[in-house]
Design a binder for these strands. Structure first.
Length: 227
DNA sequence: AAGACGATCGTT
DNA sequence: ACGATCGTCTTT
């Protein structure tokens, strides 16, 4: 018996560029509960639900595109639905979804994921438990697994996202794409079982008054409750 | 050419 | 509270 070909067995609707062509604060809120999918060159998928976001846009002093287009930030001035990945503090990457119409520089920083499909292996001294204990190193405890992608730098590490993935279209079968909320998730929102929290953004020194950070309440994968 | 700084994270 | 670490942007 031969192995079947890899198919997408999860049928969430794919997020398209039109849906993302709205102001970044709107998208930042609506991306909560959506799924970020990373597909590696070998076809392996890593998946996580978006649980924390921040919006950045033109006229916002904290936005990388505040002053003028540069080689790094140019993609933010273009159409929605592209990736914007940059290196921060010389050692971490951050992943953004470009939003709004062409000419309006804006993006949503994905700050944390609750992983639903874990990678086969983890970088460096980290290690997954079970699955025949992989190759023993130091199996992570349950609460550590839950926080593996609790932060913008951490989620890029676990999803193997670096600057080679900037300026790419977020389409199915590309290295990265987005899927909409499941009906189950949306029903939980409608019935009040899941709540969203809005706060000011964290880790910045300018634009600290703008309340453009959102996260899902009571979610262990959220990076921090406040700053 | 040189310097300042940063949408972070893990340790002290 | 602090340091690691380096690409990017600003200033000389």
């Amino acid at each position: 018996m031969t192995k079947p070909p890899v198919i997408n067995t999860i049928f969430n609707e794919i997020v398209d560029a039109t849906w993302l062509s709205r102001p970044s604060p709107t998208i930042a809120l609506e991306l909560l509960g959506c799924t970020l999918v990373r597909q590696l060159p070998n076809g392996e998928q890593i998946r996580g639900m978006i649980v924390e976001t921040e919006a950045y846009m033109a006229g916002d002093p904290a936005c990388h595109a505040y002053s003028k287009p540069t080689p790094r930030n140019a993609v933010m001035f273009g159409p929605a639905g592209m990736s914007y990945v940059y290196l921060i503090y010389g050692m971490y990457h951050c992943f953004n979804v470009v939003t709004d119409v062409e000419g309006v520089a804006s993006a949503v920083l994905i700050r944390a994921l609750e992983l639903s499909v874990f990678p086969d292996s983890l970088p460096q001294n980290l290690s997954l438990g079970s699955k025949s204990d992989r190759h023993i190193k130091k199996p992570l405890k349950k609460d550590q697994l839950a926080r593996l992608a609790a932060g913008p730098g951490k989620l890029c590490r676990v999803l193997q996202i670096d600057r080679t993935l900037t300026d790419l279209p977020l389409h199915f079968n590309q290295p990265l794409w987005l899927e909409h909320r499941t009906p189950t998730f949306q029903q939980a929102v409608n019935s009040g079982k899941i709540e969203f929290v809005q706060t000011t953004r964290i880790g910045i020194t300018k634009g600290t008054d703008l309340p453009w950070r959102w996260y899902i309440a009571d979610c262990p994968a959220v990076s921090r409750l406040s700053f």
